[in-house]
């Protein structure tokens, strides 16, 4: 997002956050304002380069005069707004949201930041009881809206299902999917404009899917890998990383990252080449690079096989 442009043409708005009066550019979100003040607010679905969808409800704060808590990522500041980010009410909500996720989704491979918040809020993923067994492959995808498997309540329902491996570039492990919508946004108007995936189903059975759950090679996917780049919980993972994790050879401590410019065309996308044992294991792009904002095309993302080979 081009915050710097917004700053130059807009006025400043005064708000009170946790008792301290601060000024921020008009049009800023509460989240941007807080972060500019060094106030830590946990986020999951929010990403600087994507349109806020405020679905995870982790970044909730109190706004004076509002009956409910407010998603700081998408609420703009208004003059005189009084915001509280650190009350028990706020903490209780964040803890519960993280527990609801952790009790239904495999969150074992997440960013250090997210792991830190889970520790901070003392997330207990067993609070809702033992987790239910995985569904069979494709089972959740065929559940009809408004009809779910009735249980006796003894097990906490989960989104666990087998990993979808249907191409050589990346795998989809929806047991790890928190439905943050980031991949759908990246595949759609926020970056790639391919629209290969969408939200399907409803309620707890809602899921990310292609039409009729067809394998990716039969879908509109162009393998840019931008969905993988924005996924916060490793539900989407490059195949090389997935395979190396399977044979336990994946070791980030032995990896180096080299920043370079993609040689394929003249756009000038920056690449971060992740290497382990002198082999390329992953290619990403820096978020702060104003050409790519973290996005790449299939060539930059996956066109390194000949080097490894």
């Amino acid at each position: 997002m081009s915050d710097s442009v917004a700053v130059s043409i807009q006025r400043s708005v005064s708000v009170t956050i946790d008792g301290i009066e601060v000024a921020a550019p008009e049009g800023s979100s509460i989240l941007q304002t807080c972060r500019s003040q060094g106030i830590d607010i946990p986020t999951l679905c929010y990403m600087e380069t994507l349109t806020p969808v405020n679905t995870c409800r982790l970044c909730m704060v109190e706004v004076q005069g509002s009956r409910t808590l407010v998603p700081s990522c998408s609420r703009k500041i208004e003059p005189g707004m009084v915001v509280i980010t650190n009350s028990d009410r706020v903490s209780e909500s964040r803890k519960m949201v993280l527990e609801l996720l952790a009790s239904s989704v495999d969150m074992s491979i997440v960013s250090d930041e997210l792991a830190g918040w889970m520790e901070l809020y003392q997330v207990d993923k067993e609070r809702f009881g033992p987790m239910a067994a995985p569904s069979s492959l494709g089972e959740r995808e065929t559940m009809r809206a408004g009809h779910h498997h009735k249980s006796d309540g003894s097990k906490a329902a989960t989104v666990f299902e087998p990993v979808k491996i249907d191409n050589d570039q990346y795998v989809r492990d929806y047991s790890r999917c928190v439905l943050c919508y980031r991949c759908v946004e990246a595949c759609g108007t926020d970056a790639q404009n391919t629209f290969a995936i969408a939200l399907g189903g409803r309620g707890f059975e809602a899921h990310i899917t292609t039409e009729f759950d067809v394998p990716l090679p039969e879908s509109a996917c162009v393998y840019c890998g931008n969905c993988v780049a924005v996924c916060p919980t490793s539900a989407l993972m490059f195949k090389i990383e997935h395979d190396m994790r399977q044979d336990q050879s994946w070791d980030e401590s032995r990896q180096t990252i080299t920043r370079t410019v993609c040689p394929y065309c003249g756009v000038g996308c920056n690449l971060e080449i992740h290497t382990q044992d002198n082999k390329i294991v992953k290619v990403t792009s820096p978020l702060d690079h104003d050409v790519t904002e973290g996005m790449l095309c299939v060539k930059g993302r996956f066109g390194f096989e000949f080097i490894n080979g």
């Binding site: 405020n54 679905t55 995870c56 409800r57 982790l58 909500s93 519960m96 949201v97 609801l100 996720l101 009790s103 239904s104 809702f128 009881g129 408004g146 009809h147 779910h148 249980s151 006796d152 309540g153 003894s154 097990k155 906490a156 329902a157 928190v178 439905l179 939200l199 189903g201 409803r202 309620g203 707890f204 059975e205 809602a206």
Partner: peptide
Amino acid sequence: REESCGQCVPCRVGTARQEELVLR
């Protein structure tokens, strides 16, 4: 649980957990 749209976590997972709690 069946009528939740599934968009936000408190409702999507919360209504499922609520049903489980009521069942137990």
